[in-house]
């Protein structure tokens, strides 16, 4: 079954730290991307729209995981930072900036706001930090709603589809390639940050802040960096979202969005890039699966459509609770166990 060696043998630390430990993994990944690249040719626009949403959610989840899972700074305001990026990118784009510049601009604005709200993290930990980021979320939501000149207030803000060198990405399958490109870039950035000096500093801060400071980690600088980088990537995700949906309103970036991102990294696995990807897929697919279920049951129980919206929220909460109780390390642990099982199949050890 498996083409993989049952153990990995390294002669240098650099090799062990490499992104892809074995050739088998490289081949699998290449195949996976090949499938991803050709699938827009065969899928309908509904499936493609879900894939796009998943990709955007992956950026958001990976960036939150960098802050919360790797650096240990809980944030209940990630949805609002996404919103800052979305509004920033939308405003830049409407002023005539090219797509990638608008995306970077939105990210930069979001990073700035994120760092401002990250300043209290120097003094606050645990629940105090959670509550201060909750305040950030609600204050930013208020700004989205009431800074009418810039954000369009409750009416929302229209954005044009992204255009690069005169080529307009105006359908789900076209924009898929663009989003996939940005997502892969963001995931690579986070993976590489985690295995370099800042990443190790983040882990040290998460595990015990005093020992981290004792071995020479500048707590304030690195916490701010974590907030900045995380909100920058969130802003990029928001900018993509704005260009993808082509219309943004304050409700899209509510408290619920922050919570669903936290749910993604918890269900996927804290502190793991792969886990955030699993979590993003799981949480994005959950409501779609429920839609499918209720529409297939509609012959049996016709009034299900009335309760579908609250039911989605209830199932979401139930999943969160069940995962926290029964699998606190998330889907990524299940994945590792499954992989380990098949690696040695059919011999248990």
């Amino acid at each position: 079954m498996s083409m993989q060696k049952c153990g990995l043998f390294y002669t240098t630390y650099g090799r062990e730290d490499g992104l892809f430990p074995s050739r088998f993994q490289k081949i699998c990944l290449a195949l996976f991307f090949a499938v991803l690249l050709i699938c827009p040719q065969f899928m309908n626009s509904y499936v493609m729209s879900i894939m796009n949403l998943i990709l955007i959610a992956i950026i958001g989840a990976v960036s939150l995981n960098l802050l919360t899972g790797v650096c240990g700074q809980m944030s209940l305001g990630h949805g609002a930072f996404l919103g800052v990026g979305a509004y920033g990118a939308a405003v830049f784009s409407n002023m005539g900036a090219p797509f990638f510049l608008a995306l970077l601009g939105g990210g930069a604005v979001s990073a700035m706001i994120g760092m401002i709200f990250g300043i209290p993290s120097l003094r606050l930990k645990g629940i105090y930090l959670a509550i201060s980021t909750l305040a950030a979320q609600l204050i930013l939501e208020y700004v989205f709603l009431h800074a009418g000149g810039l954000t369009g207030g409750a009416n929302g803000l229209p954005v044009d589809a992204p255009e690069i060198m005169g080529y307009s990405f105006d359908t789900d399958s076209k924009i898929f390639y663009l989003i996939l490109f940005v997502t892969v870039l963001c995931v690579l950035v986070v993976t590489n940050v985690i295995r370099s000096r800042p990443g190790r500093a983040f882990v040290a801060i998460r595990d015990y802040h005093q020992s981290a400071e004792n071995v020479g980690v500048n707590l304030f600088a690195f916490k701010l960096q974590a907030f900045g980088l995380s909100s920058f990537l969130a802003g990029v995700a928001g900018g993509l979202w704005a260009h993808y949906t082509m219309y943004i309103t304050p409700e899209q970036f509510s408290m619920g969005l922050s919570i669903s991102y936290l749910a993604m990294i918890i269900i996927g696995g804290m502190g793991s890039v792969l886990g955030s990807i699993f979590g993003a897929i799981f949480i994005t697919l959950l409501p779609e699966m429920l839609n499918l279920l209720t529409s297939s049951l509609s012959g049996v129980a016709p009034d299900l459509s009335a309760i579908i919206v609250p039911m989605k929220e209830g199932v979401f909460g139930l999943m969160l609770v069940l995962f926290l109780i029964f699998e606190p390390e998330g889907l990524v642990r299940k994945w590792r166990l499954t992989k380990a099982y098949w690696k040695l199949y059919p011999f248990a050890y």
């Binding site: 809980m74 629940i127 936290l262 139930l318 609770v321 926290l324």
Partner: peptide, 11 residues
Amino acid sequence: IISVIMVTIGL
């Protein structure tokens, strides 16, 4: 703490 906060949010 984050698990406990999240479980009450789920609740």
